[in-house]
Amino acid sequence: MLVDAHAHLLPRDYPADAPGCFPRMEPIDGDTARLLVFGATRFRAREVFFDAERRVEAMDASGVSAEVLTPMPPLLRYDLPPADGLSLARHVNEFTATLCAADPRRLIGFGMVPMQDPDAAATELKAVREAGLHGVEIASNVLGASIGDERFLPFFAEAERLDLPIFVHAMPAPTDRLPRSAMGTYVVGLEGALAAASLITGGTAAACPDLRVSFSHAAGGFPLVLPRAQYFWSGTWNEEPPVPERAIAHTEGPSPLDHARRFYYDSMVFDRRALRYLIDLLGHDRLLVGSDFPAMEREDPAGRTLRSLDLPEAALADITWHNAYRFLGVDPPR
């Protein structure tokens, strides 16, 4: 069994009377695909993005038992006016719920909320749950602001109260230190690291101990900087017992690694050596399978690199499906 915990969808259409700032899905002559037009974005969306039957066929072809479906990241437009952002979120969430109702055992939908208005985002979480969606996707920053900023703490606290998991998708923030061509590679890796670190350093992880959070692409460079954060906290190497008088930034309570080992991370890191490091540092119980499908093609078959590691059977089962259901907070199918 294999659960793909990082897969995306797009609505097939938007209301004819939608605000002008909404996306459009335009037909393409002689093609079943549709063209997503949203600001500067132009993206050819294949049928599998919005058709449940094609979706399940693609899952069967690649050996995927279930998918966690989140909106394509370009839909997380926090620059929209809050009222329009809420209207867009509700339309996307309604579509997601309808799509997943075609096969709720295999299609597990996540909603979106207007994080540009943290109060509205927190209030909308109840509607997300009532729609039958299993969690919420947010971007790694909100108009350049860290998600660990205190203004977003009530949102995370409400998600914890409602038992809704959060999927944090790395999204570029404006920068002139790298060319635009690097936005989808290096900047995404940096954003994942900043988002995960901010939830620890900003106090969200400590304030919401039961909150379940996962990060796309293993939170970018975050796992590589964790040992340094641990050293600053403990004053020792290799997770040896802390010596607070030697530490630079020691605080009472859980260490950076303790907090990090409460998060989940998808395994879409493109290299078996990176996977081995993640398992060794964070634990096999923290990893989820991810693919970015259908924006990117899955390995053939899904999870091929993961299976090449010759992991113990129980560890492989955790990564391929058990952890996904633990993250979701639902009982796995029998």
Score class of each variant (00 low, 15 high):
Asp4Cys: 08
His8Phe: 07
Leu9Gly: 11
Gly20Pro: 14
Cys21Tyr: 04
Phe22Glu: 00
Pro23Thr: 00
Asp31Glu: 15
Thr32Ser: 12
Leu35Thr: 06
Ala45Gly: 07
Arg46Phe: 15
Asp51Cys: 09
Ala58Cys: 10
Glu67Thr: 00
Glu67Val: 00
Val68Arg: 07
Tyr78Phe: 07
Asp84Thr: 04
Leu88Asp: 00
Asn93Thr: 13
Val113Leu: 08
Glu124Ser: 13
Leu125Asn: 01
Glu130Leu: 05
Val136Trp: 08
Ile138His: 03
Ala139Thr: 05
Val142Leu: 11
Ala145Thr: 03
Ala157Trp: 04
Ile166Leu: 08
Pro174Ser: 12
Thr175Cys: 14
Arg177Met: 04
Ser181Trp: 00
Ser181Asp: 09
Ala182Lys: 08
Val187Leu: 13
Ser198Met: 06
Thr201Trp: 11
Gly202Asn: 09
Gly202Ala: 08
Gly203Thr: 11
Thr204Trp: 03
Ala205Thr: 14
Ala205Glu: 08
Ala207Asp: 15
Ser216Glu: 11
Pro227Asp: 06
Ser234Phe: 02
Gly235Lys: 14
Glu239Phe: 14
Pro254Lys: 09
Phe263Cys: 12
Phe270Asn: 10
Arg276Asp: 02
Asp285Phe: 11
Phe293Arg: 00
Glu297Arg: 14
Arg298His: 14
Arg307Phe: 01
Ser308Asn: 07
Leu311Ile: 05
Glu313Ala: 15
Ala314Gly: 05
Ile319Cys: 08
Arg334Cys: 12
